[in-house]
Nucleic acid binder design. Structure first.
Lengths: 166, 166
DNA sequence: TTTTAATCAGATTTGTTTAATCAAGATTGA
DNA sequence: TCAATCTTGATTAAACAAATCTGATTAAAA
């Protein structure tokens, strides 16, 4: 039920691109400095974002990446949908996945679909611009500090497998 | 972002217990027949459910499992929270997890928290009774057929890693 | 009292996925 | 040219999920 690090990083990278959108393309090395994610991992994450038309890039010296459309038109829903391959709490929440034998009879499926839809709606309602405005007092102001992304990805899941203290 | 099979199975198992709640405890073998999940895996899943007070069990011959409280008082939120160790889209969505260095400065965290809360609210609003009523025409009627749980857990994730068609 | 049907506990296995790195190319401005 | 930059695909190590295996313990029924 957790988002992957790739998705979280994607959001942060796009947000950084939004922030510096009026000062030309941002090189992956800059993005790396801002977020704390390795250059190579950033490049890997940018690939699907570019393919999906969220970003553009210019090659060669003084090249880099930039948003392909205004920050008001990019939603978290778009980002999550892209990086996670859809917004679905279960495989069967996706309409296209009619692979399960008892798909149409499943007594729990409707609930998972409903919650997934709600989640998707809310994510679609949050734009990069919203995040910028909520957080940075003055958007695109270079004086605002950068903060590394959260690198803690594993452990500490409060797992139900382990028996609680004896 | 997907629920684990353990969580999905837990919901189905509890639903089955709810359905047969007026005919004494249900043995794991019966639950297995109804859902298609192996007896041993079912026992593994029932363990935390019992510890959390959602079910009770009687040992020995003609023993089995039953709900510890009425189906109107057990919500999907409870089940998911228990099996997944919380309802959080990210590690940092949990209030207790102040482990990330830039926890309070993260420009995306607030969004993940908000969506997680919405999801939790909706899951908390759905009871086992709701699922029973929505699905089975006559609750606790043995004439209704059983359907196996969805066993498809991997693949088909529409992964963004793979380049879309050339 | 013995048998038998159950739960209980937990270790082990298998394969997948994730997160990340590595390495070699392809472009392009200076 | 050359150095900064994106592009692409392969590879790795660890974590995790799903499930099975083993061996108890418990208690009703025969």
């Amino acid at each position: 039920m957790k988002l992957s690090a790739r998705t979280r990083y994607a959001a942060r990278i796009l947000l950084d691109l939004a922030r510096y959108s009026n000062s030309g393309p941002l090189a992956a090395t800059r993005l790396s400095q801002h977020t704390g994610v390795s250059v190579q991992f950033i490049e890997q994450i940018l690939k699907p974002l570019k393919q999906a038309g969220l970003t553009t890039s210019t090659r060669g010296a003084s090249g880099g990446h930039s948003l392909a459309k205004p920050a008001t038109l990019i939603t978290l829903g778009e980002v999550v949908r892209l990086m996670e391959g859809g917004i679905h709490l279960t495989l069967c929440s996706s309409e296209e996945t009619a692979t399960c034998a008892s798909w149409e009879f499943c007594p729990t499926r409707a609930a998972w679909v409903k919650v997934s839809k709600t989640m998707e709606q809310e994510l679609d309602s949050i734009t990069l611009k919203d995040l910028l405005d909520d957080y940075y007092a003055v958007p695109s102001d270079d004086n605002q500090p950068d903060f590394p992304v959260c690198r803690i990805t594993r452990t500490g899941r409060g797992n139900a497998k382990k028996s609680a203290r004896k």
